[in-house]
């Protein structure tokens, strides 16, 4: 389904997992990579344009939303956006007050940024996997990963930012205490200094890595399942009325946007009638499923339902992951502030 008509499922999946990379290619110089191999050849001197763009865009969305609310913040009765934003702020404030006991004006806004930003990045996972890449493909952009948190660069970048803060506050608050914590901690004897240092360093480094990789792993796996379900959707095309539906009968392998537009309008119409109370909900669901089966065949219907089911479950995952990243950040910073 995606892009330059990938021949097989493997290619489809690979295509979905390739970032839009701009970098210094040994042969082509600074250019966009054509495929994963070229991207790999670019090495470190490359940047994932899609990840960066989506992550910055979502960050700006966060800033705009919360800045609008902040501007409208009054001591009177709150309403609309302000209510929503205050709900989140209060939630974060409570979580931070629960686990952070030092005095630092930075931790709460940091936690808010992390939570909302990561949540927004994860939220991109709920957009249909093919929608944005397919549309951008029409505009001539060959690769597009729209979920920044499935890019380890993004998650590790944030984790490293947190790590730097941990180091900074550890040294600032504990001073030499931080060094003795690293060298004298499990075994309080000078002879054990190398062993202590090794163990504590590993423990220290494990924090940002686990932080970044946990988020990356969860989101990557979730995205992968969306893609796998989508491959079932794609596999059915052309396999007759049962597999590919009327669509395959009429158009064969050719994609026709108009046909899907017609199905989309029919489904919207049925849903609209249901909202006006003209047809019962049971009938609405049945009709929608019939339209989908007619359009894409039974496998498409199954794929759609599975996508929907996984998306519902995923709402929980994305919120939980954003929350875990935030809470662990606060806990790590709290540990950095604790003087023994």
């Amino acid at each position: 389904m995606a892009g330059e008509n990938p021949a097989s499922t493997t290619e489809y999946i690979q295509h979905h997992l390739t970032n839009l990379v701009y970098g210094n290619h040994p042969e082509n110089g600074w250019s966009f990579a054509h495929g994963a191999e070229e991207a790999a050849e670019m090495g470190f001197m490359a940047i994932h344009v899609d990840s960066m763009a989506w992550s910055i865009g979502l960050g700006i969305l966060f800033c705009l939303l919360f800045r609008t609310a902040a501007k409208r913040a009054t001591t009177g009765v709150p309403s609309g956006v302000l209510n929503f934003v205050e709900l989140i702020v209060e939630f974060i404030d409570g979580a931070v007050k629960d686990s952070f006991h030092g005095h630092n004006k930075m931790v709460a806004p940091l936690a808010l940024t992390i939570f909302v930003w990561i949540f927004l990045m994860n939220l991109m996972d709920l957009l249909p996997v093919d929608l944005v890449p397919e549309l951008l493909m029409l505009a001539g952009v060959n690769y597009q990963k729209i979920v920044p948190s499935t890019d380890p660069n993004i998650t590790l970048g944030m984790a490293l930012g947190v790590f730097i803060l941990m180091l900074y506050y550890s040294i600032k608050i504990k001073g030499t205490g931080f060094i003795s914590e690293l060298t004298m901690h499990p075994f309080n004897h000078w002879g054990f200094i190398p062993i202590n240092l090794f163990m504590e360093t590993v423990g220290l480094l494990a924090k940002p890595f686990s932080l970044g990789l946990r988020l990356f792993g969860n989101m990557y796996a979730g995205e992968m399942i969306f893609i796998l379900i989508a491959t079932m959707f794609a596999a059915g095309a052309g396999a007759g009325l049962i597999g590919g539906g009327i669509h395959a009968q009429i158009f064969g392998e050719q994609t026709s946007a108009l046909f899907w537009l017609a199905i989309f309008i029919l489904v919207c119409g049925v849903c609209g009638l249901n909202l006006k109370g003209k047809i019962s909900t049971g009938k609405t669901v049945l009709l929608c499923m019939v339209f989908m089966a007619l359009g894409g065949g039974l496998t498409a219907l199954g794929g759609g339902l599975m996508q929907w089911g996984w998306a519902v479950f995923h709402i929980l995952v994305i919120t939980l992951q954003a929350f875990i990243f935030m809470v662990l950040t606060v806990v790590y910073l709290s540990m950095a502030h604790e003087d023994h």
């Binding site: 670019m42 001197m45 490359a46 993004i154 944030m158």
Partner: peptide, 22 residues
Amino acid sequence: MNINLTLFGQMVTFAFFVWFCM
């Protein structure tokens, strides 16, 4: 899945947004 400049790009962006929020 290559680690590249995106890492630092994200760190800078992160710092900026945290500052803005703060």
